[in-house]
Computed example of a mutant assay.
Amino acid sequence: MKYPGRIIKLGEQDAGIVKALKTQLNRMLAVQRIAELKLNVDDPNFGPKMKQAVQLFQVRHVDAEGRPLKPDGEVGSITWASLFGPETVTSSDTAADSFLASVLKIAAGEEAKQVREQPKNSNRGPDVEKYLRRTGLGPGFAWCCAFLYWCFDEAAIAAHRANPMFKTAGCLDHWSNAQSKGARRLLKSQAIADPSQVQPGMIFIMDFGGGAGHTGLVEAVAGGLMTTIEGNTDASKTREGGGVYRLHRKIVEVNKGFIDYAGL
């Protein structure tokens, strides 16, 4: 059964989904000889006992990247994929929009160069400074959003067209103004409920408070997991890392939302 595109939780009304989940939970938890844990598949209700069964499954299992599941008793796309298999959730590693595919190719080229700050932890270096210059800034500023603007601008120059991305080096400034350029915003709640709406070529925005944020490009999506290309980060996934990296994140980590320039 394919993931239905929404979080399944206490009070779910679709009897078919509830039955499929109960059947799979009984099998995966091997509860045949433990009457108090076995779920009644003919009962169409997602009640407290079923929530406990989901939590038990989440405690015992990991996602496709080997990370623990969040034991919240709700079945989102990541838990669904762990229950029914990765083929039951939407996945994509290709941008449908040709321009965004070009942006991703340019970003991947910078990642392959292993761009790093010089010196370390300085927000400086030949490549870092070329990203910042493209947004009108000098060296020393946080540069994750400037990296994205540079990638978009390089793709636009190569295609002899206007750059659709709002010109800024500020992540939250970008979030606030992207729609003025015609971009679509996908809120975190929409993305978490239905990860199939997150597509390669989109830009994610994270908000850390106090005006601080982080951003990157979505390269591929598999259910609630995504591969990203980001500047000013590192393997620790911080917002002040020292290079361009390809990382693996959960969609739920994105606490602001996504920006989509497809079709512009």
Rank of each mutant, 00 (worst) to 15 (best):
V18E: 08
K19V: 03
A20G: 14
A20M: 08
A20C: 03
V31E: 04
R33V: 09
A35H: 03
A35K: 04
K38L: 14
L39W: 02
L39T: 04
L39K: 03
N40R: 09
D43M: 09
P44I: 02
P44D: 09
N45T: 14
N45L: 14
P48T: 06
K49L: 15
K49E: 07
A53N: 04
V54L: 07
Q55K: 15
L56N: 02
F57V: 02
Q58D: 09
Q58N: 08
D63I: 11
A64I: 11
R67V: 07
K70Y: 07
P71N: 06
P71Y: 06
E74C: 15
G76P: 13
I78T: 15
I78N: 05
S82G: 15
S82W: 14
L83G: 01
L83H: 08
G85Q: 11
G85Y: 12
E87R: 13
V89E: 04
T90R: 08
T90E: 13
S92Q: 08
D93L: 11
A96I: 01
S98E: 06
S98N: 04
S98W: 01
L100I: 00
L104Q: 01
L104S: 01
G109M: 07
E110K: 13
Q114A: 13
R116C: 01
R116Y: 08
E117S: 10
P119E: 03
P119S: 06
N123W: 02
P126H: 00
D127T: 13
V128M: 07
V128L: 05
V128Q: 01
E129D: 15
E129F: 03
Y131H: 10
L132P: 00
R133H: 11
R133L: 15
R133E: 13
